[in-house]
Nucleic acid binder design. Structure first.
Lengths: 201, 201
DNA sequence: CGTAAATGAACGAACGTTCGTTTTTATTAT
DNA sequence: ATAATAAAAACGAACGTTCGTTCATTTACG
């Protein structure tokens, strides 16, 4: 097993974080009590405070630890593609799949916005943005295949697609005809690409 | 004044709803207590229950009453534009401005997602979608200026832009260079339009 | 005058957190 | 290996608050 050589304290801390993570996603932050977290983590409520100073601190740790931006950056950096067009398409698809594997993260972001007014996010964003922008600039510059739009705005438009996608996904399935839900992501990507690529026809 | 001929009860009910609306936006739903709502509305806490059955019922009323979709539909329906391209651009701009005037609504949606798992939304969506789709279809059909993308997906991509925009707006200003925040909405619209319009150059 | 509205104390439940105590763990000396 | 020991972790009752809601009563409007 992977966590064989962890101390008791480290293992408990992880169990608490994991339990809280699950419960926050299932019920929301306010609706989840410390007693529930303790029960699912398998210890008494008082014991939590040997590992976290407060409920807020647990959420902060979750935001920090569960954020998938490292995997995403690695993924996008390693994506194949001969032409720029191919590369962008593949990168977008890879990102869609990775974020599709982590819809939980979107919900965590919503909780962060609603309950904390993004107070934990500022630091994280400052860490991420400088890493993402050069990536976009790199594929933007070589032969001018992209329209000269500021990378940060491209990033925002891109993220907006996913936000929209997952928000709709959260709402009941009957809102959207099922036959088009399958490949709607492809079309999303397509709209976005047409939006930022210089006309090619 | 507009609410001159309202009964006492109707006026109080409006005051409660307005107070709760402000407080939910400022502090979130869970963080807002009935006592706070009562104080801002100018009555005792018990009096609220003469007009609303529960805290949940207040939020439900807000979602229903403050939803700007009626204004938006009217706005888009009345938008000018000789060519289809012009019309779309104007409609998008008008919508941007209207939603820009109502960032509160986005936050209400987040609260709805986080605290209620969109349980109030299903009914509202069923009311809205059938009204919006024909509108998109109407501008999509006349001369095939738009790529043949399902209207519902176009709608989602469009909404995603705004979600992204306002999420970033909520996060501290220093995340985004200020010189580009002013016209970033224009560029958003532009990306979207290029994404759905048949190549025109 | 009758009824709708407003009052605010009271209720019971649940919350996050604290704390004195006990148990378990890791480390050291035997 | 075993026993001693200090530190870390777990316990769970208790604390003080605050919550949403109720209700008997008073006030004020139509």
């Amino acid at each position: 097993m992977a966590e064989e050589n962890l101390s008791k304290g480290e293992r408990t801390r992880m169990a608490i974080e994991e339990a809280a993570y699950e419960l926050f996603l299932e019920q929301g932050y306010s609706a989840t009590s410390m007693r529930q977290v303790a029960e699912r983590a398998g210890l008494a409520v008082g014991g939590i405070y040997n590992h976290f100073a407060s409920k807020d601190a647990i959420f902060e740790a979750i935001i920090h630890d569960k954020h998938p931006y490292k995997q995403i950056l690695a993924l996008v950096s390693a994506v194949p593609g001969e032409t720029v067009d191919e590369f962008i398409h593949n990168a977008a698809q890879a990102l869609v799949e990775e974020l599709g594997r982590r819809p939980d993260f979107l919900k965590l972001m919503f909780i962060e916005i609603v309950e904390f007014n993004t107070k934990h996010m500022a630091g994280l964003m400052e860490e991420i943005i400088p890493q993402v922008l050069p990536l976009i600039q790199r594929i933007q510059s070589p032969d001018g295949a992209l329209r000269p739009i500021h990378p940060a705005i491209i990033l925002r438009a891109f993220l907006g697609m996913f936000f929209s996608y997952f928000i709709m996904e959260m709402m009941a399935g009957q809102v959207m005809p099922p036959e088009m839900r399958e490949d709607s992501l492809d079309i999303f990507v397509d709209i976005f690409l047409h939006g930022i690529i210089k006309s090619e026809l």
